[in-house]
Design a binder for these strands. Structure first.
Length: 208
DNA sequence: AAAACGGGGGC
DNA sequence: GCCCCAGTTTT
């Protein structure tokens, strides 16, 4: 039986072999991370990247984003899913950052989730990626892969979150989400997983 | 607990 | 053409 650490190492190495870059540690501002994460929900990563780039080019700071006309934000966000909702949420979030947080992205879960469009998963992801604060972000990929590979046999994302926090040291929490998501997009797909090319093959409960 | 938001890509 | 997607908010 493989240890959880070994399972994650196999996934990480396989991603490296496929040329998937490791999560960037510096060079991206917390504001950039926050905007990008909100844009990303239910939207492909290529579209997310392009839309986020244009958005931040138009409005590099929270105050500039808060001052941009809603119709212009909708136009920039059009290729992304839920673009009207996100335009409204991002404009309001930017206004709150500008007027109530001094233009700075807050560092704790409660203040982050108080922003429109920011739920528990987005907050956890931003804390980890923007500030290096240990937090696990259990999205649909993490939950699915954990169950398929036999890492954890949990029924809800909340149980998966608790389980991951128990079996992995705090300093590894932040990196987990990125590994699971990249692996979930390329190998352990929701539908028709590519088991023949999977490094976990042989000790996976889904495809032993 | 379930529905609504929603355009884009894979098959 | 049909189905799925790094979720959050509202009913």
């Amino acid at each position: 039986m493989r240890t959880p650490a070994e399972t994650v190492r196999l996934m990480t190495e396989h991603l490296g072999d496929m040329g998937v870059p490791a999560p960037l540690s510096g060079g991206v501002s917390p504001f950039n991370v926050l905007v990008g994460t909100v844009v990303s929900l239910r939207t492909r990563d290529a579209v997310t990247l392009e839309v986020t780039k244009r958005l931040l080019q138009r409005a590099p700071t929270p105050c500039e984003l808060a001052g941009a006309p809603l119709c212009e934000l909708e136009e920039l966000l059009r290729p992304a899913g839920f673009f009207r909702v996100k335009a409204r949420q991002l404009k309001e979030t930017a206004r709150l950052l500008c007027e109530r947080h001094g233009g700075v992205v807050p560092r704790n879960r409660d203040e982050l989730t108080a922003l429109p469009g920011v739920g528990g998963k987005t907050a956890a992801f931003v804390m980890g990626m923007a500030f290096g604060i240990p937090a696990v972000c259990v999205d649909v990929h993490v939950h699915r892969i954990s169950n398929r590979t036999g890492l954890l046999a949990t029924r809800t994302p909340e149980q998966t979150e608790a389980g991951l926090m128990r079996i992995f040291p705090r300093e590894e929490w932040t990196g987990l989400n990125h590994v699971f998501v990249c692996f979930g997009q390329r190998v352990c797909l929701p539908v028709r997983p590519r088991c023949t090319a999977c490094p976990l093959k042989g000790e996976c409960e889904w495809n032993p």
